[in-house]
Design a protein around this nucleic acid. Structure first.
Lengths: 218, 218
DNA sequence: TGAATAGTGTCTTTAAGACACTATTCA
DNA sequence: TGAATAGTGTCTTAAAGACACTATTCA
């Protein structure tokens, strides 16, 4: 026996760092409901062209934000009768992370500081809050914030990104010790940054395109 | 513009401990596909009666396993064209944890050791694997395994549950120190277990019906 | 040389692990 | 009293934090 099927969508929380501030990409809605309002980029699952929902999320990210090949992980699935005025709905939310350079400027999108992304339509405030918690949480035990940086970066840049995401000051020495222990980054051979004031820094890249995380024991 | 909607379901991985072994509840499928085979308990979302998908999961758990008021958390959403022969499908998987006493014996269900729950239909092996990873992971930094025990329990029982879930031997002294630090349990006033050999143990209960977890810092 | 930023060494503090010890019950 | 199980104290080891120090560049 079959049942009426709920609306099924994906929504993406795309984080980036703009002006040293943790920010999120919003999209101006082209359709009802909430036409003209800014919301999380999202869209229907296209069963004819998407192999799975992660495919849908990547398609949405490419179509609506011009962003591809970024770190993407499933966040949570938000469901219920009340969250969308059209119908009982399911949205599979994804969390994406990209360096600002990879997010093109577009008329239909804007990059806003996380703290200013409130009052969004649907339950997007809740989705965003959960995504922010996930990101901050993973910043304390994984390499996730590293995906906010371009291909190569310096240690001070990496540390700064962790500080921006967690909102806390980190000690240089301890930070290096722990990232070394995780082996999350590797030096890019014999390349240094030049031209700035002070001693030029060694460049690094992420050791892995997947996440590195600590294990904790009870 | 609307798109054809995928099939939308929930599946539940219900963990329990039977004979000192981490086990999972399977249900004999009453309908096609895979009629007669054992699989994870699951079912369609009923948009007319369920407020949200967690509601659906609790309804499924009550209807198919006779289990209610248990710890339940969303695990992951499995999607795609290939995972169900009927259609492009979405299943929101939940992870549930209950003491064996609360899982009634039924003709249509069976409790099997986790290690023997393989070769399940659909992608249920994958779902189960992810659930097991989640449970074992949370056993290292949260009170989750505590929900495998009845209302009140002793310290040795609690430690045993953690050992069964993680598969590792734990030191009594360290275990007590850490659970104290988390403040996850509290003594039940002036009640002791009696009758067994040896010194009777103090009874405890979980301090909280929600999860308690450590924070680690990078 | 000194301002600026990068990077290291080391002492202190805190948490984890190991393990021997004491405590309370029953037969 | 001794077997059995519950529960504690304490020494050792490892990880985290704090912070002063050295290093390399440019003007």
């Amino acid at each position: 026996m079959e049942y009426p099927r709920p609306l099924t969508m994906v929504d993406v929380v795309l984080f980036t760092i703009a002006d040293d501030t943790l920010s999120v990409v919003l999209e101006k809605r082209a359709n009802a409901p909430f036409r003209g309002r800014f919301a999380l980029p999202g869209g229907y699952i296209h069963v004819d062209e998407d192999e799975d929902a992660e495919d849908s999320a990547r398609r949405v990210l490419a179509a609506k934000c011009g962003v591809s090949d970024v770190y993407l992980e499933q966040l949570y699935t938000f469901t219920g009768r009340a969250r969308d005025p059209r119908d009982w709905s399911v949205t599979i939310a994804y969390c994406a992370v990209a360096p600002a350079q990879r997010v093109p400027a577009r008329a239909s999108t804007k990059i806003v500081p996380l703290t200013e992304a409130t009052g969004l339509p649907f339950d997007h405030d809740r989705i965003l809050a959960r995504a922010a918690t996930r990101l901050r949480d993973k910043a304390t035990y994984s390499s996730l914030p590293g995906f906010l940086l371009p291909e190569t970066f310096t240690y001070p840049q990496l540390q700064r990104v962790y500080e921006v995401v967690t909102g806390e000051h980190l000690d240089t020495s301890s930070f290096r010790r722990k990232t070394l222990e995780l082996r999350m980054i590797e030096p890019v051979s014999s390349t240094q940054e030049r031209g700035a004031r002070g001693r030029p820094a060694q460049l690094y890249r992420l050791a892995d395109q997947t996440l590195r995380a600590y294990q904790r024991k009870i």
